[in-house]
């Protein structure tokens, strides 16, 4: 038997509200399956489960607010026999059809309200960024990168592709960052329990500003292993879902390094603030008239030194000179 607990959807979250169960007692669930929708001050999040199992009992009803780590459901492993008979009753036997409908309506209204809740999101960003600047000794490096080979290659590549399948240059930047991590693994992972824990997976957090204000930085998983076409589709999907407020819990919590591309707003360079517990954020400014881009690294000096951070930025630049290999 194991518990499904209120997940931490970011270093800054201490509680969440269950909006809706996506499973019921007796359901077989697979690792990665979305089992619940949880509301945080930032968004309503589709929460995934991290173990296969069978739902034994749901411990809380929708609209319940819980601390991170509080048990929400009991499950048994698929090879475990039921210790107690599961009563085969409806999901919420005490709720009439009308009551369930009302609860559902209330849930959707809550979700809508949340996406408007600028104050709450500001508070979450304030907490995370304050913690970052309080705890993380940042160092900053910058490098001007010739982007012409990448842009020329991309024009040729896009000319061969139907319009819907074209790729934007930001995807090349994400891939170059993810591949460069292999040379300098100490920028990819988490600072936890007083030490750096490198991550095998390269999950790149993408800073996405929301039109209603605020930002989120959900992750694209295994960016180093995916081809550019797939990354473009995943980036598109991620941005769309970030703006409509339907991100998955794993996207919220498991970025191992973040990329911010403020060139969009026309600034030359960006010196990022690291999202704890990550240890690095890479920034890209706007493309200059000479087709160069200012690439910056904010690194956690506990996890890496400027020398290694410098090698990381140089590696990104080298990879962008050979976009055909990305």
């Amino acid at each position: 038997m194991f518990e499904f607990k209120m997940p931490s959807l970011g270093a800054d979250m201490d509680k969440g509200r269950l909006i809706e169960w996506k499973v019921k007692p007796g359901d077989h669930v697979k690792r990665g399956q979305i089992v619940a929708i949880v509301e945080t001050p930032k968004a309503a999040v589709d929460v995934e489960i991290f173990e296969d199992g069978i739902v034994e009992r749901l411990l809380v009803d929708p609209q319940t607010e819980m601390a991170v780590g509080a048990p929400m459901a009991l499950l048994r492993a698929t090879n475990e026999t039921a210790v107690t008979a599961i009563p085969q009753v409806a999901e919420h036997p005490h709720l009439s059809h009308r009551a369930r409908k009302l609860a559902h309506q209330a849930a959707s209204e809550t979700t809508l309200r949340v996406s408007d809740n600028r104050e709450a999101m500001r508070a979450v960003i304030a907490a995370a960024m304050s913690r970052s600047k309080r705890e993380i000794p940042h160092y900053y490096l910058g490098n001007e990168v010739d982007l012409k080979p990448s842009l020329d290659w991309l024009s040729e590549e896009n000319a061969k592709r139907p319009m819907e399948d074209r790729i934007i240059y930001a995807v090349l930047l994400l891939k170059a960052v993810a591949k460069a991590v292999a040379s300098v693994p100490e920028v990819n992972g988490f600072w936890l329990d007083g030490r750096f824990q490198a991550s095998q997976a390269v999950n790149v957090g993408v800073a996405i500003s929301l039109r209603q204000g605020g930002l989120v930085a959900p992750a694209i998983h295994d960016v180093d292993k995916k081809d550019l076409g797939l990354l473009m589709r995943e980036l598109n999907d991620l941005v769309l879902r970030a703006r409509s407020g339907s991100l998955r819990s794993s996207e919220f919590s498991d970025a191992t390094i973040t990329v911010t591309n403020l060139g969009e707003q026309g600034v030359d360079s960006v010196f990022g603030v690291i999202y704890p517990p990550q240890v690095a954020i890479v920034g890209f400014g706007k493309i200059s008239a000479r087709q160069t881009v200012q690439t910056t690294l904010a690194g956690d000096h506990r996890a890496s030194d400027g020398h290694r951070g410098g090698l990381f930025l140089v590696k990104i630049a080298q990879l962008l000179q050979h976009p055909e290999n990305l």
């Binding site: 319009m163 819907e164 074209r166 039109r211 980036l235 598109n236 941005v239």
Partner: peptide, 16 residues
């Protein structure tokens, strides 16, 4: 309208 490059691309896809 403060449109980023990804949305700009998607707008053109919709026009197409």
């Amino acid at each position: 309208l403060d449109i980023d490059s990804l949305d700009a691309f998607n707008i053109l896809v919709q026009v197409h």
